[in-house]
């Protein structure tokens, strides 16, 4: 009873905040609605017993991705009227993607109710007494080890690529060298002299 109530609450809020991401006039508000949508999606994950995925969703998407997103959107000076006019241009394309997604959902539901999928004979049957994290770890680091490592490698390449593309060497700056500064001693910098009158010091 309470699960049903929670499911409809979370699901309704996901859809509502997802719609408000598109329809709110202010891009910062859009990002905040997006965060609410992530949150409620995490709530749905908890309801199906995938607490690890739920926490990762909050940590990765809400805690890191959306922060950077908000960071960028806050600093942009956005012309709202121009943004509105884009809606008609991209509206058709968006509707097309939405239709494809709906079609896929119908196919998935059809395949499910046709009864061809036996839950106990899945590639990775779920055992109820094993915590999420252990179950995922046991699969990722044994059966899917190479795929997992390959995914990590792809991300590493993407990261290095992003750095190479955006990094530029600036020769006009003089960054501090911390270890050099710490190593510096008074006798390296200070010299005691006793110059004769009228001659001064040679620097």
């Amino acid at each position: 009873m309470i699960q049903v109530f929670a499911f409809y609450l979370f699901a309704a809020l996901v859809i509502l905040s997802g719609a408000l991401v598109i329809f709110s006039r202010n891009p910062v508000h859009s990002v905040l609605w997006l965060i609410l949508a992530f949150f409620n999606a995490a709530g749905l994950m908890v309801l199906v017993g995938a607490e690890f995925i739920a926490m990762l969703l909050v940590i990765v998407y809400v805690g890191a991705v959306a922060v950077l997103f908000l960071f960028v959107v806050m600093m942009l000076d956005i012309d709202f009227a121009e943004l509105r006019s884009g809606l008609t241009r991209y509206g058709l394309f968006g509707a097309l993607i939405a239709m494809v997604l709906v079609g896929e959902m119908i196919i998935a539901e059809g395949a499910w109710s046709a009864g061809a999928i036996q839950l106990a004979q899945r590639a990775a049957p779920v055992s109820a007494d094993m915590p999420n994290i252990e179950a995922m770890g046991a699969l990722i680091y044994s059966r899917y080890l190479y795929v997992f490592e390959a995914a990590g490698l792809v991300l590493l390449v993407a990261m290095i690529g992003a750095i190479v593309l955006t990094h530029r060497e600036r020769r006009d700056t003089r960054p501090q060298n911390i270890s050099q500064q710490v190593r510096r001693r008074p006798q390296d910098a200070v010299r005691n002299t006793n110059p004769p009158v009228g001659q001064g010091v040679e620097l």
């Binding site: 909050v58 940590i59 994290i133």
Partner: peptide, 11 residues
């Protein structure tokens, strides 16, 4: 997932 919960909430 207590520790992950803390990480999530503190983020």
């Amino acid at each position: 997932v207590g520790l992950l919960y803390i990480l999530a909430a503190s983020s």
